[in-house]
Amino acid sequence: MIALLLRDLRLSVRSGGGFGLGLAFFLLVATLVPFGVGAEAAVLSRIASGILWVGALLACLLSLDRIFALDHEDGSLDLLATAPIPLEGVAAVKAAAHWIVTGLPLTLIAPVLGVLLSLPGAGYAPLVLSLLLGTPALSAIGTFGAALTVGVRRGGLLMSLLVLPLYVPTLIFGAEVARRGAAGLDNSTALLMLGGITAGTMALLPFASAAAIRAGLR
């Protein structure tokens, strides 16, 4: 399984691997929003955490269809399905690899973009914490969506439609943690809910993804 993780990471940093795609998109969103809504610090600081969360979510969505589609096209997925490692493990590793190349860099760059959006000083720690806790759920849910559409040619649209409603709870609680934190309010309830969503999706969705792949390969 480590070998699969290393292979996926290596593939994503080599040419055409899509590493940086989500990051570039996130950067664009955060740069363009001040132009769109005006550079008024009071307005920006109120919406900053929400904008960053929506941007991170859409950036995650952008690279989801590569998770299984490429392996399906070149036949690797068939071979992985007959390999000694369980498909549940494959799905978990794929989600982990997606998080390392998408969710983790987004989390790390978010404070820098927070400066662009004049995020209040108290908001940085809750923002990073909420993204760190929430983006694994985005990767796990997204892997499930990618697994559901694995046999579908150009299934990106279908996958986005399937995944978006599943992303909503993560977005609500993630943005709430960051917003309440920035406003200096108690955010422990939202934080616990976010943690619960992440723990639940990471534990359960690899099994659902594996079942979806098995059905898709037939």
């Binding site: 292979r7 290596r10 593939l11 080599r14 040419s15 055409g16 691997g17 096209e73 070149d74 036949g75 690797s76 068939d78 071979l79």
Partner: peptide, 10 residues
């Protein structure tokens, strides 16, 4: 099978 499961960038 017909597809070899090779990664072209490896």
């Amino acid at each position: 099978a017909h597809a070899d499961g090779l990664k072209s960038t490896l």
